[in-house]
Computed example of a mutant assay.
Amino acid sequence: MRQKPGLAIGALAERTGLAVSAIRYYESQGLVSAWRNAGGQRRFERADIRRLSFVMIAQKFDFTIAEIRELLNSLPDGRAPTPADWRRISEQFRAALDQRIAVLETLRDDLDGCIGCGCLSLPKCALYNKGDRAAQKGTGPRYLMGDSSEIDDQG
């Protein structure tokens, strides 16, 4: 049986613009996988060009390697992903981006209010955190983590 030729790591680097060391790192993280030809050289699928392009795009949006791996793991092994496969990934990616955009918009809008106020102290903030209500929801930046900053009847 004749083995398929695949792409050498140098050719993959040239096609993606990535350094060979970056491709080796992404391989070690399970984002792409290679096989060895009869001469022991690492070979990649042509579909790995798109996988690595997706990795570069996702990293520009601050997705972690684990998040990227999770998305890529839903793609099929042993065949090139179809447009439907990529559409499914795109929907998941879009949902995560929408969540990030919402958090950034909240941060931007709330930051404007805090800068205008000048106190920058959530325990003392009568507008966003009267009576330090946020502390009842747990530690950390509660409103940035998705908790509501709506003023309720308990405040």
Rank of each mutant, 00 (worst) to 15 (best):
G118W: 10
D77N: 15
T82G: 01
S149G: 10
P141F: 15
R42L: 07
K4N: 12
G17E: 07
L52T: 02
K137D: 15
P76W: 05
G146F: 05
L144P: 01
L111E: 10
L52F: 01
V55K: 01
M145N: 10
A47W: 00
A135I: 05
I68M: 06
Y143D: 03
R51G: 00
R43S: 09
L52S: 02
I89L: 12
Q59V: 00
A102Q: 10
A95W: 03
F93P: 01
V55N: 01
K137S: 13
P76G: 06
G146A: 10
S21K: 10
F54K: 00
L52C: 02
K4E: 14
A95M: 09
R94Q: 09
K124E: 15
Q59D: 02
R2Q: 14
L144Y: 05
Y143K: 04
R79Y: 00
N73S: 11
W35I: 05
W86I: 02
D153M: 09
L144D: 06
D77P: 09
A134D: 09
P141H: 14
R2D: 12
A19D: 09
N73P: 02
R142A: 15
S74E: 11
L71S: 06
D62R: 13
M1Q: 06
A47K: 00
I115A: 15
P76S: 05
E14M: 13
R142S: 13
L144V: 07
S148E: 07
C119I: 15
L12P: 02
K60D: 13
F63A: 05
S148H: 01
E91S: 11
D48M: 05
S28N: 04
Y26P: 00
A34P: 02
E27D: 09
F61T: 10
F93V: 06
R43V: 07
L31H: 05
D153Y: 13
Q3N: 10
Q99L: 12
E27A: 04
M56I: 02
G155I: 10
K124H: 11
Q41S: 07
G140W: 08
L12H: 03
S28R: 04
Y128H: 14
S53H: 06
